[in-house]
């Protein structure tokens, strides 16, 4: 039972009720109002890094004051009036994407997002040092959510980057590659071979599928996941395809032994 207070607010001229503690973005998404985001993920803590989710807020008591806030972080309050799109917000978002494109001109995902706002080439000076990292921090947060905290952000301002402690292979990394999977611009790379997964300077030995011998996951990850979930490690040593093949074989053999006792189906019929 939740004792949350109900809050009344207005988004784009429509009135909504929501529980105290929700953010503007959560209410808007629930009501099907679209607000663009880059760094937001439902499973991860919001950080307001990309600032694309900017919305304009005002309040009858604020004497006409209004301002742009990141909707992913701003908690709703009684009587709040939110505008999710107007020319000012559009310009702000456009500038943000223009800046991102100046930072990462080669990132196809950013090119696609910018094109939606009519930007094909950045109007700013392109960054000299090539990168495709937009500093959304999804990789850092997903690593924390997994319980590893192996990577982090370093530096401030123009030197900010995603890195591993002391530029050495991080001791807490389990090689799960969740950071690479969640990266919207595919900046984080890893390579899998039959025996090894290379990521963040590590070389992880892979566990082979007990049935077909294809690599399943790094040994270190297997230990970590089995302990965390309280599962027997044997649950994690068969690849999905072999698991399905085994289920199929089991079901088929049950047909022969039970439903058709006399042998083939033609005989039974």
């Amino acid at each position: 039972m939740t004792n949350n207070k109900t809050i009344n607010l207005e988004i784009d001229g429509r009135f909504f009720q929501a529980d105290e503690g929700m953010t503007i973005l959560e209410v808007a998404r629930r009501e099907g109002i679209e607000i663009p985001t880059l760094c937001q993920h439902d499973a991860l803590e919001p950080v307001g890094a990309c600032r694309l989710c900017l919305v304009e807020i005002t309040h009858p008591n604020w004497k006409g004051w209004k301002g742009l806030v990141t909707s992913c972080l701003y908690p709703i309050e009684e009587g709040l009036q939110v505008t999710t799109n107007n020319p000012e917000i559009h310009t702000a978002r456009k500038t943000l994407l223009d800046l991102l494109l100046a930072r990462c001109p080669e990132a196809t995902y950013i090119q696609k997002c910018a094109a939606e706002y009519g930007i094909t080439a950045t109007s700013f000076k392109k960054r000299e040092e090539e990168t495709t990292c937009i500093l959304c921090g999804l990789c850092v947060r997903v690593c924390a959510a997994k319980g590893c905290n192996a990577i982090g952000a370093t530096g401030r301002g123009i030197t900010k980057g995603i890195a591993v402690p002391f530029r050495q292979p991080p001791p807490d990394c389990i090689g799960c590659a969740s950071c690479a999977h969640i990266c919207p611009t595919d900046t984080i790379k890893y390579t899998d071979t039959e025996d090894l997964r290379k990521i963040w300077g590590h070389k992880f030995k892979m566990v082979k599928c007990v049935s077909c011998g294809r690599p399943v996951m790094p040994e270190k990850q297997l230990e970590f996941e089995a302990a965390k979930a309280g599962l027997d490690a044997k649950y994690l040593t068969t690849c999905p395809q072999c698991s399905q093949d085994q289920t199929l074989a089991t079901v088929q053999s049950s047909f022969q032994s039970k439903t058709v006792p006399g042998g083939s189906l033609e005989v039974a019929r």
């Binding site: 997994k146 799960c176 590659a177 969740s178 999977h181 399943v216 996951m217 996941e225 979930a229 599962l231 649950y235 994690l236 068969t238 690849c239 999905p240 395809q241 072999c242 698991s243 399905q244 093949d245 085994q246 289920t247």
Partner: peptide, 11 residues
Amino acid sequence: CGLCSVACPFG
């Protein structure tokens, strides 16, 4: 992350 795919004993 694909962990559930590996964990499902039935594929």
